[in-house]
């Protein structure tokens, strides 16, 4: 079995994001970038499937700037086998990415495309679903457990108010949720090995995909600042203040 894992380079989860002064977007200059945490979970799951003897090859794919090679390298250092980078500077909207991934799937013929349910920058939660639709494949989204069976895949999904288990015929698209696993550290021996693993450099043109954006961002703003509170002396004081504000 072959698994393809699309990964995205995003602003590190722990970075406090700041809006650009001209309100056109968020500040990306000199900001720590890392692999989208949901994609990291997808890489980990793929490696676990390989370690369990269920998969033979893991291909990590990214659509993004040249520096996304580092992100792919992280996946390779965790244990994936090779990488493909479709180089594109500028916005990557879910539909264009899904079309690019579809073209790569056609060349690579993976049995599973395993990816994060969403990237923490745009929070779109669309790429996996769009890809499944474009390929006409079954999809198991928000997976908290993935169990391969003979020719099929049992996926436990995190849904409102509980869990749902679906059985997918292969090939299939699976998107990962937080509780699926805890990603491993990239060990030094594996980081060194990863340097020798190949990364194919491609462009959207190689796949005939138009990366043009369909959405226009009008304005990006900081959420309103929380205003300073006041101290009240007594319960009566609190009640009268609340009444004054028309809260009660």
């Amino acid at each position: 079995m072959k698994i393809m894992v699309p990964v995205k380079r995003v602003v590190d989860y722990n970075v406090k994001v700041r809006v650009k002064s001209d309100n056109t977007g968020v500040e990306l200059a000199n900001v720590k970038m890392s692999m989208n945490p949901f994609d990291e979970i997808a890489v980990e799951e793929a490696i676990r499937l390989k370690e369990a003897g269920k998969a033979e090859e893991i291909v990590v794919v990214s659509v993004g700037p040249k520096l996304a090679q580092e992100t792919i390298r992280t996946g390779l250092a965790m244990g994936a086998d090779r990488g493909i980078l479709v180089e594109h500077d500028g916005e990557t909207e879910p539909l264009a990415v899904a079309k690019t991934l579809k073209a790569i799937v056609t060349e690579e013929n993976p049995d599973i495309v395993l990816l994060g349910k969403q990237a923490i920058d745009g929070d779109n939660n669309q790429t996996g679903q769009m890809l499944a639709q474009l390929l006409g494949w079954p999809q198991g989204t928000f997976a908290s457990e993935v169990a391969p069976e003979d020719g099929s895949l049992s996926v436990t999904r995190e849904i409102d108010g509980g869990l749902e288990t679906v059985k997918l015929n292969l090939p299939a698209v699976v998107t990962t949720d937080l509780r699926l696993n805890e990603p491993r550290y990239a060990s030094l021996p594996n980081i060194m090995k990863a340097k020798r693993k190949p990364i194919d450099m491609k462009t959207p043109a190689d796949y005939g995909v138009d990366m043009g954006t369909r959405l226009t961002v009008l304005k990006v703003e900081e959420p309103p600042q929380r205003e300073a509170g006041i101290m009240v002396e007594s319960v009566e004081d609190l009640v009268s203040k609340l009444k004054e504000k028309g809260v009660i």
């Binding site: 722990n14 720590k32 990291e40 550290y185 990239a186 060990s187 030094l188």
Partner: peptide, 24 residues
Amino acid sequence: DDWVAKAFEQGLIKDGAVAQSETQ
């Protein structure tokens, strides 16, 4: 990267990990 590779070869580093994100 070169430093790590060399120290590893010399046996000064037995095993190691490099943080890939701020979480790590």
